[in-house]
Amino acid sequence: MTPLLQVEDIAKYYGTRIGCTGVSFDLYPGEVMGIVGESGSGKSTLLNTLAGHLTPDRGAVRFDTRADGLRDTVTMSEPERRMLSRTDWAFVHQHARDGLRMNVSAGGNVGERLMAVGARHYGKIRATASDWLGRVEINEDRIDDRPASFSGGMQQRLQIARNLVTGPRLVFMDEPTGGLDVSVQARLLDLLRNLVREMGLSAIIVTHDLAVVRLLADRLMVMKDGHVVESGLTDQVLDDPQHGYTQLLVSSVLQV
């Protein structure tokens, strides 16, 4: 089986400061990988580097493209990379307003990716948008409302619909449940899990919330100071952490 994403020795520096370094892993179709670590550990830098938002100083990020199999997205041309990022890739931001157009209706937000890949039939675009609002549990009569009038959880679900409408194969998520109420988080987690399974999505989720990765991620990487200090099966890393930092992280979580 070909990995969907093959990350090899990725390094990103900010001047002399390490953003992240020496990161390698394979992600297979349908797999969900969690990346945990505290603020400044390099997990967001890594995610943005993998997603093509930052250019790594070293290493390769190979993606199994539909046309040509594994291609290094770091060295591919920018138009190709941007095309990937609005077709086969998706990026869910922590703050929905970074991932949504706040002055465009919900339907327009969902439809944008369709129009970006050439959809030119208003009726069909609207029907697809309406279907997706339903799938992320937003009432279809909100289709012409702007996201500014939505609650935080709704905005986040709208962002997810906007990202998944083109049927991507890989989703990058940066703290997707951050800043949401616990009950809203649960709903979102449930939604994400179902979508991941129904669509056979692979996902890379950055979070500092260990409960989130336990429920969503098959595998886990723990980052500290730009390095991956431990990785493995999610429940194994959480229940039998080997590295001192991971042990500290796990033991620091308040049990409810």
């Binding site: 941007r82 465009v104 209706s105 339907g107 327009g108 990716r113 890949v117 012409d144």
Partner: peptide, 14 residues
């Protein structure tokens, strides 16, 4: 990348 232009027209019709 001109999908956005059609978003504006979509908004009009909506």
């Amino acid at each position: 990348e001109y999908g956005l232009m059609h978003v504006k027209l979509y908004e009009d019709i909506a």
